[in-house]
Nucleic acid binder design. Structure first.
Lengths: 207, 207, 207, 207
DNA sequence: CATGAATGAGACTTCATTCAT
DNA sequence: GATGAATGAAGTCTCATTCAT
């Protein structure tokens, strides 16, 4: 039974410690994205942040908890930002644009976390798994709600809302397989392309 | 330097042996999909096909070669089938429908292989990696060619062909994260939804 | 308890089979000399003679027996030849020259066997070990007898016969570490040098 | 590419750790001498020093590095001692006596290391091999230089210096095959016998 | 005589984790 | 807060050997 002891970075007053934790989480995400959870050894994480292996255990109780913190932080932040940005937008078209922008803004800057979350959700067990699953479910439901409204507004009865939302996330999340901040298109262009393809796909029911 | 010795199942005459290899590849794909390459131990593969660990090494020289055979077979079959199906279709709309159907027909029936190929390409090194990479590049170029024609025909100058192709594969490949043969929608329905969303998205340039 | 079933090559009438056995023994000796007994796998021996692994077991019952045959043949031949050559020589000086020549003649042409016999005597267990040990003891006693006579004739009371014999074999057997049939001195020269150094060392007691 | 990280025992200040390393090297040498490198399992070494298998890997990175450390330490010490002892001796006769004494003093007390170095040089690969090879070459050249002078002084033109040096080492190194500290002659006697046999062998050219 | 296929045993090695300091 | 040293568990792979064909 894992003892979840997630440390809320924002609330803590030990800034030095929490900056260090953030550094560790980021380094771990990079290594886990590059090599997968299993191949991402604690040893490599320690080396990449210039610490001893043993000292890392001050910041997390197990390798699984390290993975949990990465995933939890990612979705917590994503969801909090989304809620805030949606507050003043009410039309479905505007809301879906906010969601897409929020998602891509976050993950273009955190491709490693995106990859880790995509690959390693089911690596978590028990309470860790449930905790992250819950956040993701909430996030998906928000998106689904917007898509439902959008299809209604377009009079589109061909597309199934749930499948359409899944396909949207397919395009959004797939970016971790191809986006390269160095050589790729601008984030803005990539973002616009997906928005455009998706909204057109929805708006005009096939005759 | 890995000595790649891919055995072409179709051409071999040692049926008994090759059927056994196919069984092993399938079992391995299932376990690797469920648990990831690293956690998918040879022991588990052996147990799942009712063989001793050592005897598996009669069929592949290393765990990496096992992964390679899974990926190579998958893309070789996919590509061969596609080439055959495209032979008698010349209009871009028909060709993209063939590609989507071919892709989904294959992977709805081989979700494990899809997941393994998606997650573990870069687990392969050296010649193994290059060999699979080459097949995938060929496959992508075929799709890209069709999308280019499609955009031209639609007079759509907004969408970038390469990004559009990547987004298409985002929707197509993402199915491994949500499709459930037991409880999900029919393959036909899921397939139609993606085709519809994509073709509409392309056809009608945003006003 | 190993069942020693040494096949006497000379007496057998299955020439084809025995030629094959000789080929195998020679190939095995080469590989064992190069890599040591443990690293010299049956697989490598099989490959080097172009046979399947299983078929080798027709010629010996175990890897240890293979090693035994190599060692037994080597010392049996060496000893038989020595006895024959010594028959007509009675003075110690002549007899020691015969022994040195016999030893070097044989081993310059069978360096691999010399190395294997030097390194792997104690790899043999039980009856195998005793059998070879017996031959070697007989061989050593013959040499020791000659050295005793030689020291007596020289009036040399400084040197201990047994130690002197051991030192002689040190020089004789050490050749496997440095003699190279391709680039080294002629066998004749190398042989003369040892004979010269040893006989002078014995003949002239230090002041 | 092995990363050779030889720890100089003498210079380190972590006495506890280095004493432990020395203990391990010694135990490993004994087992490798008794059974050969391949049969000398890490398990046996661990058991013989009362440690877990995994903990040994704190002291070396691979079994091959363990073998390397044994060989490197042996020849480094031997060579350093020789250089020191030769410093104040200039006549060839004295110098060869110093060399013989140094060699035998060291190896009578480290017969296991002598056997391991004799049998397993070529078990080392790449940088490990080159490193030890270099030391041995230096050691041999020192001996050869002395023998050259010695032969010159004796007016002996019969003997080839290189072959003579090789034969000397044959007698010196062969001791690992027969010397028994329990039942054998005194080291002093054994040492004198070799010195005597060799110097006489050289001094009096055969008529 | 020959061999394809199989297997139990056991080797080296790595890893997450702990704990005394 | 930090870390050197240690370890049980487990993984991949190789090997000698067997046996039905």
């Amino acid at each position: 039974m894992p003892d979840i002891s997630y440390r809320n970075l924002a609330e803590s007053r030990h800034l030095r410690t929490d900056e260090r934790l953030a550094t560790i989480l980021h380094a771990a995400a990079r290594i886990m994205a590059d090599e997968g959870y299993e191949r991402a050894t604690i040893r490599k994480v320690a080396a990449s942040v210039g610490a001893s292996i043993a000292s890392l255990y001050y910041y997390f109780n197990s390798k699984e908890e390290l993975l949990y913190q990465i995933q939890y932080c990612t979705f917590k932040t994503l969801l909090d930002n989304l809620d805030e940005s949606l507050e003043n937008v009410s039309d479905p078209d505007g809301r879906i644009r906010v969601l897409i922008r929020n998602h891509l803004d976050h993950f273009f800057r955190n491709l490693n976390e995106l990859k880790v979350c995509s690959h390693e959700l089911e690596t978590l067990k028990g309470a860790y798994y449930e905790s992250v699953k819950e956040l993701r479910k909430t996030y998906f439901r928000t998106a689904l709600g917007i898509v439902v409204d959008l299809l209604k507004d377009s009079g589109n009865t061909t597309l199934d809302p749930k499948l359409t939302t899944l396909n949207l996330f397919g395009m959004l999340d797939w970016i971790y397989t191809w986006y390269d901040p160095e050589t790729g298109p601008s984030e803005r262009k990539a973002s616009n392309q997906i928005t455009c393809l998706f909204l057109n796909g929805i708006r005009s029911p096939s005759r």
